Simulated scan of single mutants.
Amino acid sequence: MSEGIVQRRKAKVEEKNVSSDEKTADDVQASESDSHDDDKMARLTLMEEILLLGLKDREGYTSFWNDCISSGLRGCVMIELALRNRIELEKSGMRKKNLVSRKVILKSDKPTGDVILDESLKHIKETQPTETVVSWIEYLSGETWNPLKLRYQLRNVRERLAKNLVEKGVLSTEKQNFLLFDMTTHPLQNSVMKAKLIKRVQEAVLQRWTNDVHRMDKKMLSLIVLAHASDVLENAFAPLSDQDYELAMRRVRTLLELDHEVECEKKPNPSHDVMWAVFEAFSK
């Protein structure tokens, strides 16, 4: 995991001379802009954040060689539904079923307002008998040998997420010609938003790091683990110095090497159990 990007961009800071009046005006404008961007950031789903980390800024699409992001995004769907209190895991019972054997239970069918999440919620609601987290990730990805389950596949997820980000002012839309075909791409429009997302991920494993995983924000914890599973985490760490990069990756490894069954038992929570089950599914 410490391999990957060999050359990382070094952040460069240029000092600019501005008058005190200009600086004051710029500070006010920047403060208002920051507040507006923070509001937008709060509205981004886990899936949108993963896609944004994996997106090439100028080209407007994810790497053609990345075959992990598809299942990673489906894992995000399950965690997002759990964090929004729509689903949970069945109780482990007297025989103490392991995480990946416990079934996903519908907690509430109240719409989330997100089309992809609501589509997934509808599938979970209609499915009897209930299924495990591992099965749902496979079904939603379309990676199942059971033809009866293919109808659960979420189609065009990356394109739909990109369009959501266009509506939120983060991406734009362009047409690119690739010799034999035209392709709709979504180049980055709001670079400040992506920079803030990257900074939040970096700070989570550097300045804001805690050795107690249960004190970490669950969405940020999920973002780090699933960004790794989706092979896009390197993009967030690329601008770091060599020293910070090694420290960040070492701390990420401690998260990836956790015993999810043990952590789940420390603070039982049916909704958080879904998160631990997703982590376990991607650790195999």
Rank of each mutant, 00 (worst) to 15 (best):
M249H: 13
E265V: 10
H260A: 10
L233N: 04
V225A: 02
D217V: 01
D244N: 15
D273L: 11
K219I: 09
F282H: 12
D231G: 08
L255C: 06
E265F: 00
D244W: 05
D273Q: 14
H260K: 11
E263D: 08
D259K: 03
C264G: 10
M216Q: 12
P268M: 01
A248R: 01
N235H: 10
N235K: 13
A236D: 05
V213N: 03
S271E: 15
S230D: 09
M216S: 07
E257K: 13
P270F: 04
V225H: 11
D244K: 11
I224K: 00
V274P: 12
L247R: 11
E265C: 12
K266Y: 09
K267Q: 14
M249N: 13
A281E: 04
L223P: 01
P270L: 09
W276G: 00
R253F: 11
H272S: 12
S222H: 01
Y245R: 14
Y245M: 10
S230C: 03
F282M: 00
L223D: 04
D217F: 06
D231H: 13
K219V: 05
F279L: 05
S241I: 09
L258H: 07
L247N: 06
A238M: 15
A238K: 14
M275Q: 15
M220H: 00
F282V: 06
M220F: 00
E246H: 13
M220T: 15
D259S: 10
V278D: 03
M220A: 01
R253L: 12
A229N: 03
A248K: 05
D212S: 12
M249R: 12
V252Q: 02
R253H: 11
E257N: 15
R215Y: 12
S222G: 07
E263V: 02
T254D: 09
L247F: 00
E234N: 15
V213F: 07
P239N: 00
M275R: 07
H260E: 11
A236I: 05
L256H: 03
V213L: 03
V252A: 07
V213H: 04
S241P: 08
I224G: 02
A281P: 03
I224W: 06
E265K: 15
H260R: 11
L221Q: 07
S283W: 06
L226D: 01
A281C: 11
H228C: 09
S271R: 12
A281G: 02
K218E: 07
A236T: 03
